[in-house]
Amino acid sequence: MKHHRTLALAAALALLGVPNVQTVQAAEPSATAITPKEGWYHQIVNASFVAGYAILPKPEGVMIIDSRPTARKYDIGHIPTAVSIPDSQFEQLTGRLPVDKDTLLIFYCDGPECRLSHDSAFKAEKLGYTRVHVYAAGYPDWVSQGHIGAVSIPYIKKLQDEGAPMTLIDSRPKERKYDKGHIPGAISIPDLQFDKLVDRLPADKASPLYFYCEGLSCTLSSDSAARAVKRGYTRVKVVPEGYPEWVRRYGPGPTADTISKPAIQVGRDTSTITVASFERIYREAPDTIHLIDVRDPAEFAKGSFKGAMNFPIKTLERRIGELPSDKPIVFFCGAGGRSGEAHDLTKQLRPQLVTYFIDAEIKWSADGSHTITE
């Protein structure tokens, strides 16, 4: 039997080892604590009921419908798998509704004071749909219940065009999917390698994160999003339509053969790499450099950059022949002193190597994140 996973708090709870008490498909509407208002549609459901259907892969026989304006509301935050049919355009957009009149329809908008979902529900009933319900508490309640929200592909494009700060994560396998085409600006953190590559995420837990994968049949992005929430990130959303929708709207994205790797930018001292340049390379193309930690083993054991090798400065001279030569080397320590010494020593003993060092104060946290202060 195919197992569906929620895009909501249940996914995060599962990662924490808490049993998932939500049903995959609820047969009847759940009870709601909201007191019905005059003019409301008569079938009201709550977040638990909706969460049973806001899952990936998207289940058959159900459609969740956002009755709010598309650009102003739906694009910037909606229930995962929901489609946008603004109530003001309902008659013009009935073609988006399913042909089967027995399909479960769940309408929602912006909370108890919003009537758009109720108005749309009445219209759907008049069209002959037999299983119409309204999530009256709407999207504000969805978020307040701890469920992960979703954004649209056009919204991601808008953020990119505006140069807004964000981290866009491709959760698909790197070589098989990401390298063959991805949304421009996305970084690759395959869901199966999330814990190993979590250092590629920004250290600031309030940074906006957007996860995507291969569309409404793919669960990888929602799984990674739940892992990010578990690690303390507070502004996490998914892009359920993912890369296929990007291709449909804007064409294929860059591939491993066409994308340009971030170049090393040197500081005033040409022996150093700028912090901004290092952070970008470490985040987007860590496999293009060798990271050499020249601190003592005890310091190295307490935290370092992912993938770094430990060459304590006291042993570097006798181990100089072990330094790799196929990529540029970036030496680092905790403050720039020992790493600068390592760079100078290497230039004396193996001048053919391309080496730089980070001349800044670096601290690592227990969760693997880091901060660099110039």
Rank of each mutant, 00 (worst) to 15 (best):
A71L: 04
D344N: 03
V198P: 09
T23E: 15
K177Y: 12
L192E: 09
F90R: 10
T288H: 04
S88C: 02
K314D: 08
E374K: 08
D269E: 03
R96Q: 12
F107K: 10
Y53P: 13
S369I: 07
S84H: 02
I259L: 10
C109D: 09
A228G: 10
S325P: 00
A225G: 07
I289M: 05
K174S: 13
D179P: 05
A298F: 06
L93V: 10
V151Y: 01
A206M: 06
K2P: 04
T81Y: 04
W364D: 07
S144Q: 15
A285P: 03
S84D: 01
S120Q: 13
G267D: 06
K2G: 02
A308F: 12
T23H: 15
Q193F: 03
P324K: 11
P29Y: 08
P98G: 10
C109G: 04
R319W: 00
E374N: 01
S260T: 13
Q160G: 11
W364S: 10
P324I: 01
V83D: 00
P254Y: 05
Q160K: 14
D293I: 12
A228P: 06
I55E: 03
L13H: 14
F122A: 09
V294M: 11
E28R: 15
V21A: 11
Q160D: 09
E28M: 07
G61Q: 14
Y243V: 02
Y108K: 02
T373I: 03
A342V: 02
A121W: 00
S369D: 10
N310M: 12
D223S: 11
E341R: 14
V151E: 00
V354F: 04
V99E: 14
D326C: 13
A136F: 00
D110I: 01
E361Q: 14
S188H: 06
I281M: 00
A228Y: 00
R248N: 08
A137K: 14
H343K: 12
I64C: 01
Y210K: 02
A256R: 13
F300V: 00
S120F: 10
A47T: 06
A26I: 01
A10F: 09
L220V: 06
D344R: 11
F278K: 07
R115Q: 14
